[in-house]
Amino acid sequence: MARKIRPVSFDLEDPFEKELNDHASKYKFSVYVKRLIQRDKENSFPTFNRGQIQSEEDFSEALEDYM
């Protein structure tokens, strides 16, 4: 069986990236990322830019709206 591992890094000194890491840590990371990719592939995942999300609360609200 062939597997491809793709690491993702988070800058824990950047508040935005730290919040993303903290949020993703609540889930099985590999499964979580694969589901996000699947939704993006199906063109149903919203596009966010860094200016739209300033806090973990903003991210959580956006994610809840999406789900």
Rank of each mutant, 00 (worst) to 15 (best):
N49C: 09
L63C: 09
K34E: 10
L63Y: 15
H23M: 14
D11A: 05
F10S: 07
K18V: 04
P15K: 07
K4F: 09
E56V: 08
P7H: 11
S30G: 08
Y66S: 06
I53H: 03
E56P: 00
F48N: 03
V8F: 15
P15M: 08
S44V: 15
H23V: 15
Q38A: 15
V33K: 12
I37E: 10
S44P: 00
V8T: 12
S60L: 14
Y66G: 00
D40P: 00
R6L: 12
N21K: 14
L63H: 15
V31H: 11
V31W: 06
Y66V: 06
P7E: 14
E17K: 05
M1T: 05
E19P: 00
N21I: 00
F45M: 15
E42P: 01
E61L: 08
S25H: 03
P15C: 06
A62F: 04
G51L: 05
R35L: 12
N43A: 07
L36K: 08
I5H: 13
E56S: 09
L36M: 11
V8W: 08
F29Y: 03
S25F: 01
K34C: 04
E19Y: 02
H23T: 15
I37D: 07
T47W: 13
I53D: 01
S44Q: 15
N21P: 00
E57N: 08
S60R: 13
V33T: 04
V31T: 09
K28F: 10
R35T: 10
S30L: 06
E57A: 14
A24H: 14
S55M: 02
L36T: 05
T47M: 13
D65G: 04
Q52T: 03
E42R: 13
A2T: 05
I37V: 12
D58Q: 00
F10Q: 04
S55Y: 02
L36P: 00
P15D: 13
D58C: 02
P7D: 07
D65C: 04
S30V: 11
V33A: 11
F16R: 07
E56R: 09
Y66C: 10
L12T: 03
D65N: 15
N43Y: 07
I53V: 14
E64F: 09
L36H: 09
R39Y: 06
E57C: 02
R35V: 06
P46C: 04
A2K: 11
K41M: 10
Q38N: 11
R39T: 04
Y66A: 11
R6Q: 12
P7R: 13
K41D: 08
I37R: 11
F45E: 15
Y32V: 01
F59V: 07
Q54P: 00
A24Q: 08
K18H: 12
K18S: 12
D22M: 01
V31M: 06
S60Q: 13
D40I: 02
H23L: 15
K41R: 09
E61G: 00
S55H: 03
Q38G: 10
D58H: 03
D40K: 10
D40C: 05
I37G: 05
P46R: 06
Y32E: 01
Y27C: 04
G51T: 08
E57H: 07
K26L: 09
L63S: 09
E13S: 15
F10P: 05
F10T: 07
M1E: 04
S25Y: 02
Y27I: 03
D58S: 02
E19R: 03
G51F: 01
K26A: 11
E61W: 01
K18W: 08
Q38K: 14
E56N: 03
N49R: 10
R6F: 13
D40R: 12
P7M: 08
